[in-house]
């Protein structure tokens, strides 16, 4: 019996909790991408690097706060820096929109041209990020690392396996729930939110209802700035900041968007979790898990791992391919053309 409990705790600790928090981070980023898809109608390749840039702003502000001795007790100081970083991110995004995207919007350029412009923005943004913080790994989480440590859990339950809850995981999940709740409330219940959906649904008819497109675009970028910054900071608190790993978030984020259905906000959330859990389930080594469950003679001697962790983004890709082959519209019917 305790063996079964131990096995379950093992999975909770190494697959379920990390999957939940990574999935939340992906979901927030995917929500931003899907909103841009729905309203501005292009795949924003700059998402990962914009996330990195807003995290860089947060890190710099955090260092500044720490320099003046301002911290947030057992919570990470980055939370204090977050609101300012959101504003900074918004300013950057609005500048980019003014100088890059707006022109193509007015020209009614083909989506692929705007995608290409976003690739240009991706490299400029990535350049700024690397110029400011370099290519190295930075840890900027301070405060208590754990809410419950593995040791405390073991002492509490008497099990051999511990279930550690990291502060960053707890924060990620709570903030993500609140934020997603807010975005959905906004889209479903407020007049502006409904206007956004209307604009996404039928642009011409939205204009015929008197909806101003640049208001819609502005609100979209505001939501994107909030989602992007928070997603980036939560990811950074959880795993540390590194420019390339943010850049590489692009693939799982896109995969999440497409799995869920392009332009569908609920789809982006579901997609985020599909990707994160697939990654963790397929790259976890089940050896220990089966040692708990199987009698001694049947116990495995290999790692029992489907895929090395160095290939974790291949999982996103494979899921992407499966979706494109079987159901290109995604789970919630997205736009295919």
């Amino acid at each position: 019996m305790t063996d079964i409990l131990n096995a379950i705790v093992l999975l909770l600790n190494f697959v379920f909790l990390p999957g939940l928090s990574y999935g939340s981070q992906l979901a927030l980023g995917a929500l931003a991408v899907t909103l841009v898809y729905a309203i501005l109608r292009f795949a924003n390749f700059a998402q990962g690097d914009t996330m990195a840039l807003s995290t860089v702003m947060t890190i710099l502000l955090t260092w500044l706060l720490q320099h003046f001795g301002i911290t947030l007790g057992f919570m990470p100081t980055a939370l204090l820096a977050l609101p300012l970083a959101i504003i900074g991110c918004l300013i950057y995004i609005m500048l980019v929109d003014t100088f890059v995207y707006r022109y193509y919007r007015r020209q009614k350029s083909k989506p692929i041209t705007i995608v290409m412009a976003s690739v240009g923005v991706m490299f400029v943004t990535g350049g700024i990020v690397r110029f400011v913080l370099g290519p190295d790994h930075h840890i900027f989480a301070d405060g208590e690392r754990f809410i419950i440590t593995a040791r405390e859990f073991k002492a509490m339950t008497g099990l051999a396996e511990g279930l550690a809850i990291k502060t960053s995981q707890f924060l990620t999940i709570t903030i993500a729930i609140l934020l997603v709740g807010f975005v959905f409330y906004f889209l479903q219940r407020t007049k502006t939110g409904k206007a956004m959906r209307a604009y996404a649904d039928n642009e011409d008819l939205a204009l015929l209802s008197g909806i101003e497109p640049h208001n819609i675009v502005r609100v979209t970028w505001i939501l994107v700035a909030i989602l992007t910054t928070i997603a980036g900071v939560l990811y950074g608190l959880d795993k540390g900041f590194m420019a390339t790993s943010y850049h590489q978030l692009l693939l799982p984020t896109f995969a999440a968007v497409i799995v869920g259905g392009i332009g569908s906000p609920p789809g982006a959330i579901i997609g985020g979790f599909v990707i994160s859990f697939s990654e963790l389930i397929l790259t976890y080594a089940y050896k220990k898990f089966f040692i708990y469950l199987l009698p001694e003679i049947l116990q495995p001697d290999s790692l029992l791992q489907f895929l090395g962790t160095e290939y974790k983004f291949a999982v996103s890709f494979v899921i992407l391919v499966i979706v494109l082959l079987l159901r290109p519209t995604g789970i919630f019917k997205g736009k295919v053309i």
Binding site: A43, L251, I258, I262, L320, V321, I337
Partner: peptide, 14 residues
């Protein structure tokens, strides 16, 4: 969609 190719090529190259 035209951008699926872009995303797929990004993935395969990584």
């Amino acid at each position: 969609r035209t951008d699926y190719l872009a995303i797929a090529t990004l993935g395969i190259s990584e």
